[in-house]
Amino acid sequence: MSMQDLIAKIAKGPRAAKDLTWDEAKRAMKALIEGEATSAQVGAFLMAMRIKMESVTELASMTATARSYVAPVPIPRELGVVDLPSYAGKQDTFHALAAAAVVAASAGASVLMHGYDGIPGREGNAGVLKALGLPVEMGPKAAAEAVAQHGFAYLDIALYHPPVYRFLEMRQELGVRNIFHPIARLLNPARASSQIIGLSHPPHFEKTAEVLRMLGSHRALVVSGVEGDPELSLTTLTRVLELRDERITPFSFAPRDIGLPLGAPRDMAGFPSDQRDKEADLLRRILHNQLQGGACHWVLMNAALILYAAGKGATWPSCVPLARRALECGAAAKKLEELSQEPVGIGVTG
């Protein structure tokens, strides 16, 4: 089936358009990644798919095909690494996920965060991690070594999967997101047995859990997260779907479930892009247990979520004491210092 035929199938309008089969979606992805499609066909396909909306089968097939082009990040499976994608960027809130991942690592979790920092006006986690002194330009091999040795690494999608990165960059040219944004979240570079995926696009909530099940994921938490990142909210209920052993279960997580009061929006308030050092200072104070109250609570509850995904507790509330202990005993501060001593830029091409 030619690219013209594939485009015609999905671009016939709301009544006549049809979903692609698994094999057709795979054929489309190969044409996109391998450069068989012309520039006009690429734009037409991406926009037609956005208007039609991706089916579960299309998204699963295209993700599986994208995965096949790049070798997995070689992290030993016995580490039980948690896959933590971050592709939304922030406008209004600070990057609690960055601090939460450090706390979780200090409490025994292994975490691979991967992301993209190119959405105009939306700052990704890479910027604040870099301001904290953590390396953000490691290649896959170096990232695997960092996770094995220190429990955490950040992997830039551009250094792991250049073709997917190239299509993410097209958002700036097209003006809207495309199917590669959910695909990037689903890549799971280390083929981790546990994933936490955040999103804010309502049509993708249940769909993402179904895609993960189709892809054979053992365990995943799909979070209707703050600004699209995999973060629980401090100010309201957060919807979560848990996939475990092919069963999808809905939950609602709230601060009161773990004995914390609801916070105010100011507790999660972010910083302008030119004040990244101020945000890094906030996270550093939280990790050194020098700051109490809402901002600290927000990091704490999300660190507990990562620990829960890592299997460090049977429930989310049971992981809160682990995260709190890591902050109070200085383990989180020590982990930050340890991670910031990683050679910046090691293994950029590895």
Results as ranks from 00 to 15, higher is better:
Pro202Val: 04
Ser217Met: 03
Val222Cys: 03
Ser233Leu: 10
Ser193Lys: 15
Gln195His: 05
Met214Asn: 10
Gln195Val: 06
Thr208Trp: 02
Pro189Leu: 02
Leu221Asn: 04
Ile183Arg: 09
Pro182Glu: 04
Leu215Gln: 01
Lys207Tyr: 05
Val211Leu: 01
Gly216Glu: 05
Ser200Trp: 12
Asn188Ala: 01
Leu232Cys: 01
Ser200His: 15
Glu206Cys: 04
Met214Ala: 11
Val226Trp: 11
Glu227Cys: 09
Phe205Asn: 10
Arg191Cys: 03
Arg185Ser: 02
Glu231Met: 13
Thr208Phe: 01
Ser193Asn: 06
Gln195Met: 11
Leu221Gln: 14
His201Leu: 06
Leu212Met: 04
Gly225Trp: 12
Glu206Gln: 13
Ile197Ala: 04
Thr208Lys: 03
Val223Asp: 00
Asn188Gln: 03
Leu234Phe: 10
Asp229Phe: 09
Pro189Arg: 06
Ile197Asp: 02
Leu215Phe: 02
Gly225Glu: 15
His201Met: 15
Ser200Asp: 11
Ser224Tyr: 14
Val211Gln: 01
His201Pro: 11
Asp229Thr: 07
Gln195Lys: 15
Gly198Thr: 05
Ile183Glu: 07
Gly228Arg: 11
Arg213Thr: 01
Ile196Pro: 05
Val211Met: 02
Arg213Leu: 01
Ser217Val: 03
Glu206Val: 12
His218Asp: 12
Pro202Cys: 08
Ile196Phe: 09
Leu232Met: 08
Gln195Trp: 15
Leu186Asp: 00
Ser194Thr: 06
Leu187Gly: 08
Thr208Ser: 01
Ala190Gln: 07
Ile183Leu: 06
Pro202Met: 10
Arg213His: 02
Arg185Ile: 07
Lys207Asp: 00
Leu212Gly: 01
Ser233Trp: 09
Gly225Ile: 08
Val211Asp: 00
Asp229Val: 06
Leu215Gly: 00
Leu215Asn: 00
Ser233Gln: 15
Ile197Trp: 07
His218Asn: 06
Gly228Asp: 13
Glu206Arg: 06
Ser233Asn: 09
Leu199Cys: 03
Ser233Asp: 13
His201Asn: 08
Gly225Arg: 14
Glu231His: 13
Ala192Leu: 04
Ser200Met: 12
Pro230Thr: 15
His218Val: 10
Leu215Met: 03
Ser193Pro: 11
Leu221Asp: 03
Leu186Ala: 00
Pro182Ala: 05
Phe205Met: 05
Leu221Ser: 04
Val211His: 02
Leu186Arg: 00
Pro182Gly: 05
Arg185Met: 08
Lys207Thr: 01
Ile196Met: 14
Ile196Leu: 07
Gly216Ser: 04
Glu231Gln: 08
Arg213Tyr: 06
Gly198Val: 13
Val222Pro: 07
Gly225Lys: 05
Pro230Gly: 04
Leu232Phe: 09
His201Gln: 14
Thr208Leu: 01
Gln195Asn: 03
Leu212Phe: 05
Ala184Thr: 12
Asn188Cys: 00
Ala220Gln: 03
Val222Thr: 12
Ser193His: 11
Leu234Trp: 14
Phe205Thr: 10
Ala184Val: 10
Pro182Phe: 04
Glu206Asn: 13
Pro230Cys: 03
Ile183Ser: 04
Arg213Glu: 00
Gly228Leu: 09
Leu187Val: 13
Ile197Cys: 07
Val226Arg: 15
Asn188Tyr: 06
Leu186Thr: 00
Val222Phe: 08
Val223Phe: 08
Ser194Trp: 12
Ser193Arg: 13
Leu199Ile: 14
His204Tyr: 15
Ser193Ala: 11
Ser217Leu: 04
Asn188Thr: 06
Ala184Glu: 06
Ala184Trp: 12
Glu206Ser: 09
Val226Gln: 13
